[in-house]
C-alpha cells in the first residue's frame, strides 16, 4: 500500500473541494472496495477524504420518491421498513450482494461506484486498459468467463459487479450529486458508462463530484419482484449473471414491467425493449421466453463466456417466473 494523507471533513463543501482540487484524492466511505484496491496496488490515491462525518445517512420520503442517503449502509437500507414496503426489489438485490459483514460497512454511494472484479484489472502484472490505459485488455483474449456480452469495446470487456445497481437502474432511480460546479441529478442509467475508448472512466461523474443520495420513485412494483442471481455458490460470490424483474400485474396480465441484467456489461443493463414487449401480455412462461429473446438482441460472447448467451435469458425467465409467482 502507498503512503497517503487522510482527512475527515465534517462539511460537505470541504470534502468536495479537497477532491476537486487534488487529482490524486479519493473519497472513502465504507472502504470495502477502495482499501482492497489500494492493498493490491491497483489504486494509489495520495489523499483519502473520509466522508463518514457528512450527514448523508438518512432514508426519507421526498415527494413521490424514497431518498436514500449516500452513506446509508447497505444493511440499513435492506432492513428499512419503508424500503421493504415500497421497493422490495432493491432489498433483494442488496441482500444478494457480498456478505452480511460487508453490507454492514458498504454504503449506498460506494456500492454504485465499486469497480470491476476483472482479474486483469486486479493484477498489476497483467495488461488492463482500465487500470493502466494503453496496456491492452488482458481479458479480450484471456480468461473471459465472467465478462461482458453487451456494450463492450475492444479496449475493455469488464462488467460492473454491483447487485444493488441492477435494481436501481430497473427502478428508474436518480442519483443526486454535488460538485465544484453545484448540484445535479443524474438518471441512474446515465451514471455508469460504456467503456468505449476510455475504459478508465467507469462513470459520468466529474472530478470532485460527490454522490449525496439516490431517489427511488414510488411505483407499483411492491409485490411481483425478483432479483435472481446465478453464481458459483449459494451465497457470497459475484454473479455469473443476474436479472432484476418487477411486474405490475392485473390478474395474469402484465400492466408494466421493469427489467435489467447484471454482470453482462460495463454498466447495469436495463432492458427497455423487453419491458415494452411484455406490456399487455399474459404472465406465462411463453411470454417470458419471448421477452428474454428480445432482451438478448445484440449480445455477443467471447471464448469463455459463451454460456452467458444461454444463462442470461434463462436467468431472466427464472426471475420473471419467480416475480409472477411472488
Amino acid at each position: 500500500m502507498n503512503q497517503f494523507n487522510y482527512i475527515r471533513p465534517s462539511k460537505q463543501q470541504a470534502a468536495i473541494d479537497a477532491v476537486a482540487k487534488d487529482g490524486n484524492a479519493k473519497f472513502i466511505a465504507g472502504g470495502t472496495n477502495l482499501v482492497d484496491l489500494m492493498k493490491r496496488g491497483v489504486m494509489a490515491p495520495q489523499k483519502l477524504v473520509d466522508i463518514n462525518r457528512l450527514p448523508l445517512t438518512k432514508i426519507e420520503r421526498q415527494g413521490n420518491a424514497l431518498r436514500i442517503g449516500a452513506l446509508a449502509l447497505n444493511s440499513t437500507v435492506a432492513d428499512d421498513r419503508q424500503v421493504r414496503e415500497r421497493q422490495p426489489l432493491l432489498v433483494q438485490a442488496i441482500n444478494a450482494g457480498a456478505s452480511a459483514q460487508l453490507r454492514n460497512m458498504a454504503t449506498t454511494g460506494g456500492n454504485m461506484l465499486q469497480r470491476t472484479r476483472c482479474p486483469y484489472f486486479y493484477d498489476t502484472a497483467m495488461p488492463c486498459n482500465k487500470r493502466e490505459p494503453g496496456t491492452g485488455c488482458g481479458a479480450l483474449e484471456g480468461i473471459n468467463r465472467m465478462h461482458a456480452i453487451f456494450g463492450f469495446s475492444d479496449k475493455c470487456i469488464a462488467v460492473h459487479p454491483s447487485d444493488m445497481s441492477v435494481a436501481l437502474v430497473a427502478l428508474d432511480a436518480t442519483v443526486l450529486v454535488s460538485g465544484p460546479k453545484g448540484d445535479r441529478r443524474i438518471p441512474f442509467t446515465d451514471l455508469h458508462r460504456l467503456p468505449g475508448d476510455a475504459p478508465e472512466k467507469d462513470t459520468t461523474l466529474e472530478p470532485g463530484e460527490l454522490i449525496t443520495a439516490v431517489d427511488v420513485p414510488d411505483g407499483p412494483f411492491t409485490k411481483h419482484v425478483s432479483y435472481y442471481k446465478v453464481r458459483e455458490r449459494a451465497s457470497y460470490a459475484f454473479a455469473l449473471v443476474s436479472a432484476a424483474a418487477a411486474l405490475d400485474l392485473d390478474g395474469t396480465t402484465i400492466k408494466s414491467a421493469r427489467l435489467a441484467f447484471g454482470s453482462v456489461a460495463h454498466k447495469p443493463w436495463r432492458l427497455t425493449a423487453a419491458e415494452q414487449m411484455l406490456v399487455g401480455k399474459p404472465a406465462t412462461e411463453e411470454t417470458f421466453r419471448q421477452a428474454a429473446a428480445v432482451a438478448m438482441q445484440g449480445a455477443k460472447a467471447f471464448k469463455h463466456n459463451e454460456y452467458k448467451l444461454k444463462l442470461a435469458p434463462n436467468t431472466l425467465i427464472q426471475a420473471l417466473k419467480t416475480a409472477a409467482a411472488a
Binding site: 472484479r117 482479474p119 486483469y120 483474449e141 480468461i143 455458490r233
Partner: peptide, 28 residues
C-alpha cells in the same frame, strides 16, 4: 466450485483471491 485457473499466455493465475477462488460457504 473449486478451480484455480491460469491464463496460459502469461502463465499466471487469474483466481488468486477468495472472491475468485470459491470455497463452500455455509449456504452450500
Amino acid at each position: 466450485m473449486e478451480a484455480a485457473v491460469i491464463d496460459d499466455r502469461f502463465g499466471r493465475y487469474v483466481t488468486k483471491d477468495l472472491a475468485e477462488y470459491h470455497v463452500p460457504v455455509h449456504a452450500d
